[in-house]
Amino acid sequence: MRTDTTGRVVALHLAVIAVLVALLWILPDYHRGVMARVLVLSVFAMGYNLTFGYAGLLSLGHAMFFAAGLYGAGLAAYYPGWSVLPSFAFGIACGGVLALVVGFLALRTTGVAFMIVTMMFSQVFYLTTLYYTTWTRGEEGLVLGTDLRTVSLGAATLELWEPTTRYLVAVGLFSVVFLATMAIARAPFGRILIAIRENEERMRMLGYDVHRAKLKAMVLSGLFCAAAGAAYALLFGYVGSSFASIQYSILPLLWVLLGGAATTLGPLFGTVFMFYVVDVTSGYTSAWLLVVGVALILLVLFFPKGVFGTIRERWLKWLP
């Protein structure tokens, strides 16, 4: 009989979440603020990991899905003055629809062409945010006031700008996506995605509609990334077009590569690590671009499986 690893996998993931909650009392204020941001961005990375890591689709356009959530939620809150929950839902829906349309078109191509097509669609999105500057205020961006970021649930009110609440909401969103990724990775669907990455032609001859499976992965990935974007707008109150720039398509690639593609823990690790590397080095030099560039090259040259990919290969084969 095969050993069942479900118990320890679930325990490990719950332990990670418990540690993140505990950090609320351990971390000083500054780092709690940083970690709230990092957790939201690692949700973005987890979304990217689903397509890049598991399904093997190298996209350079995921900034558009993050930005779709950011603008969907941000604009809905700013202009018609929607409350937090509808804005958040609208942001996620925007990302899902965009991923469906972009995925349907871009997945007709593979490999390098897929990368270029996704990059171009994302660039169109970025230019669109600049073109409608009267609405978006372009790079300068919109600032959502604290009144727009207060949830009233019956008698209770949740003030999303307040550091403790913000941190806990970030942990909450992270946990949902984190556990969802774990479930997907271990489900038949996760096996299908990995197998498509490994041998697409064989999958077709096993009777799988490869295009459809990839499209599903794209939409899920778009939903995760948009959830991160929408949460970013509502937690930190800033909506700017720099989040749609190509920079933000490359960063999740870097985070996922560093932590380990197709691992559930990799995106979190990669995001935390890179954020702090940039944070620490910026004390000595402003050359954070150099840090990112050197990190990318060293990773592909010497460490292509990333931290958790290597751990899984060497020691813990059961890591999802």
């Binding site: 038949p188 096996r191 299908i192 990995i194 197998a195 999958m203 096993l206 009777g207 799988y208």
Partner: peptide, 9 residues
């Protein structure tokens, strides 16, 4: 996993 892909299909 190789065979499971066929079975789950």
């Amino acid at each position: 996993d190789n065979v499971a892909l066929s079975v789950q299909r």
